[in-house]
Computed example of a mutant assay.
Amino acid sequence: MSTPAPTDLASLRAALEADPDLIALREVLRHHLAEDPQGEDPGHDEAHCMRVALWTLRLAPEVPARLAIAAALLHDVVNLPKDDPARHEASTRSAKVARAALEERGFDAADVTLVCDAIRDHSFSRGATPATALGRALQDADRLEALGALGLCRTLSTGARMGARYFDPADPWAARRELDDRAFTVDHFFTKLLALPETMLTERGREEGRKRAAFLRAFLGQLGEELGALPPL
């Protein structure tokens, strides 16, 4: 079955609803979300997967749409907490779940491998460089979610879930201490987020990433003004 390439979230939802296999994969995602012992995580919910799907399509228009959507739907189907020692295994476990779901739906063996390899290699914590256009697009699309207004929302909610403070009141920019993003959420901008655009593997991903990182720098600048201590940007 050929799925037309969606251009926005509305057409993406329509494409998904028109494909019984994608509907079935969405049900796999929903089942795992409902069973997640962490409870609802707004940073890794179905809406996140749909946004990742849309950007995967934008970054790799040459990839069949249904494969890009399938990869995005299941890329975080196993979601381990950020502070879990096995966090780096989450994408490998997600790929295993995806393989079973795709094979059950009768996807071609080559397509199953393509999608599962992309899922396995997309994770930042795994540190892999994907070898395919789908893999590179999926990785970039997922990293874009960590930047911009969405990234700000996700960073603050993740920090709250981990019990982190917003920042160190005595030293918000870590001028006299080591960065510690498990204790202070703002530190995460400097340990990871602001460097993400230069890790993007697609030209459009880097361009969008730089734009979204500029928003985060503007936020940090405003925070610094309110604290009376400007950040080292």
Rank of each mutant, 00 (worst) to 15 (best):
D111C: 06
A5Q: 14
L29P: 03
D41G: 04
R30P: 00
G224A: 01
P37A: 11
T132L: 07
A213H: 06
E207H: 09
D117G: 09
R143K: 14
C153S: 09
C153I: 03
D142N: 12
L57M: 12
H122L: 06
E103Y: 02
V186S: 08
P232C: 03
V186P: 00
A229Q: 14
L233V: 05
T202D: 08
A109L: 13
G135N: 08
N79H: 14
G43R: 11
E226M: 07
H48I: 09
H31F: 12
E62G: 15
T199M: 13
H31P: 00
P64D: 04
F167W: 12
T185Q: 06
D171P: 02
L230N: 01
A175W: 01
A98N: 03
L12K: 08
K82A: 14
A98I: 02
P42M: 08
T56W: 03
A131Y: 02
C153N: 05
E40R: 07
R87C: 10
R120L: 05
T3S: 10
L102A: 12
S123M: 06
T3F: 01
R143V: 02
A149P: 02
S11P: 02
S157T: 14
R51C: 07
R212M: 12
A213E: 14
P197T: 11
R217Q: 15
S91I: 05
